[in-house]
Nucleic acid binder design. Structure first.
Length: 505
RNA sequence: GUGGCUAUGGUGUAGUGGUUAACACAGCGGUUUGUGGUACCGUUAACUCGAGUUCAAUUCUCGAUAGCCACCCCA
């Protein structure tokens, strides 16, 4: 039986460590990976929340696949010639001699699971939602990490263009509900047959011009001709206009499919652009491909997400022939950094509304119990029983932005009362200890009511302005943030905000 | 993977070839031992690592590491 190798923890080299002045070595995290700290969690939860909401709205069930798969799952699915498989995968041999890989994307594993569990026998399409970390060994940059988080939707077993369009819509909805404006870039890569034709045509067109192309394009010509259309070098730009277009090489069926998708997008009034440069780096795509670009990023600096149809993948991974499928993935890291960049408000992970403060030992014991009682009754309550002075406790209450602080000292213990302090006005009232729950319910209800009124008031004025469908898109682009913000906040208003989400972690 | 730029307390920034490396914010403690959001005082805390040049390096040079930017590619 193979024994694990002895782990050297104290190499003289300082790789992965930083020496502190006391001579101890502080360990640091691995290149391209990072901690997501408590104060940043609200962004991730907001994204996750919307992703899950859209999933359930459209009937996509959550699936969790292992982070490790046999290397073949990705090698066969993504394509051996792709950058991802060629040089970006975290692949290693385990002690049993199997080649394993940290998943670099989500689709292949979902398809593997679909096949393995015989889901072909369920009602088609089978619709999946996933969320979690992916790993690629690329050179890190902002918005590019070696461990990054993605969520995505996959629908397997359906070929209708309505599915493509609906998936495109779902991804766009996610971004929109988060208050992010995005433009969809769409293209069709055709089926393998038309793609071969197109590749031939491209080669025929570019071959004679080889010497005039930039260095990377000369490489592309040999390795991946489709990427020639992607080049931003000026010297190559001039050839692009005359270059063959994939759309001209689509066969009847692919063309019809693509037209339908476009029709649906038009009908849904989605902001899209036909972009023949969208090629996607994974071999399994066919027909429809798309990406979401942030509306303010012009050249699509970093796509927020993308996806497409992958009719051949199920077969490639050993499933039934001709099983159609379509899906998309969105990058959570990039969405989060956009939210922060645009200073979009997201709700706190936990917003306490009541703070329980105490003075003196007897009071501390009493509030300990009171706190539990309130918490179990569903009040959002916070405390600092490890601090003894009132000033500090009020400071904390203030930082936590609670609405009420309940103060119990010697006097209150004796009288059987509680001092209720309204943190906004500083007004304090004495309340009977036994009536505190109903009293708090009443006060908080009133406060929520007031907040809601304040919130909805300006919205009412906006509605009467009729918007015709035609002008809507351009006009709404400016409003997206405001409007989306509102809906978003509102959907969080309820008491059960993240109640379910937390258990997933 | 290739090329470029950067590296000072927890964070954001000053600054210097030579005694105590400055400021702001945050943290902790106090100014009324029963009262917060605005004040005041105190206090904690840093020159990424290694090698070289030098009498002397946080400062100059090289290397490592990390971050950022471009290419590549994508999320």
């Amino acid at each position: 039986m193979p024994r694990p190798k002895k782990i050297e923890t104290d190499k003289s080299s300082l790789i992965g460590a930083k020496k502190s002045k006391k001579g101890r070595k502080e360990l640091i995290n691995v290149t391209g990976m990072r901690d997501i700290l408590p104060q940043d969690q609200k962004y991730w939860q907001a994204v996750s929340h919307v992703a899950q909401k859209i999933a359930t709205d459209y009937g996509y069930g959550k699936i969790e696949t292992p982070i490790l798969e046999y290397t073949d799952v990705f090698a066969r699915g993504i394509g051996k010639q792709t950058d991802i498989v060629e040089k970006e995968m975290y692949t290693f041999e385990d002690s049993g001699g199997d080649s394993l890989t940290l998943r670099p994307e989500g689709t292949a594993a979902v398809v593997r699971s679909y096949i393995q569990h015989g889901m072909i026998n369920q009602i088609q399409p089978v619709k999946f939602f996933y969320e979690g970390p992916m790993f690629r060994h690329e050179k890190p940059q902002s918005g590019r990490y070696r461990q990054f988080y993605q969520f995505g939707y996959e629908a397997i077993g359906e070929s209708s263009p309505a599915l493509d369009a609906q998936l495109i819509l779902m991804g766009w909805n996610c971004l929109n509900e988060l208050g992010l404006e995005s433009v969809i870039q769409v293209n069709s890569m055709g089926c393998p047959t038309c793609r071969e034709e197109f590749k031939k045509a491209l080669l025929k067109y570019y071959k004679p011009k080889t010497k005039q192309l930039c260095e990377s394009c000369q490489r592309r010509l040999v390795k991946n001709p489709l990427r020639l259309l992607d080049c931003k070098e000026e010297s190559c730009q001039k050839f692009k206009d005359e270059a063959p277009q994939i759309l001209d090489y689509l066969d009847e069926e692919c063309k019809k499919h693509f037209m339908k998708v476009i029709e649906y997008l038009d009908e849904l009034d989605l902001p899209y652009v036909l972009n023949s440069g969208i090629v996607r780096g994974l071999d399994y795509y066919s027909k429809t491909v798309f990406e979401y670009w942030s509306a303010d990023d012009g050249e699509g600096k970093s796509a927020l997400g993308g996806g497409g149809r992958y009719d051949g993948l199920v077969e490639m991974l050993g499933g039934r022939d001709n099983t159609p499928a379509c899906g998309l993935g969105l990058g959570m890291d990039r969405i989060v950094s956009k939210l922060r960049e645009k200073e979009i408000d997201v709700p706190e992970v936990y917003q306490a509304e009541i703070f329980v403060a105490q003075l003196g030992e007897a009071a501390k014991k009493k509030t300990f119990v009171l706190y539990e009682k309130l918490r179990r009754r569903g009040f959002k309550v916070s405390q600092a029983f490890y601090k003894d002075n009132l000033k500090t406790q009020l400071e904390m209450a203030n930082k936590l932005k609670v609405k009420f602080t309940l103060i119990i000292g010697q006097k209150e213990v004796g009288e059987g009362t509680v001092l209720v302090r309204d943190m906004e006005g500083g007004i304090q009232e004495v309340v009977d200890f036994n009536k505190i729950e109903s009293d708090m319910t009443k006060r908080l209800d009133k406060w929520h009511q007031q907040k809601l009124e304040k919130f909805t008031a300006p919205e009412v004025e906006d509605i009467p302005e009729g918007k015709t469908k035609g002008e809507k898109r351009a006009k709404d682009l400016d409003d997206f943030n405001g409007e989306a913000d509102f809906n978003f906040e509102d959907s969080y208003g309820g008491d059960t905000m993240f109640a379910g989400d937390n258990e997933d972690y």
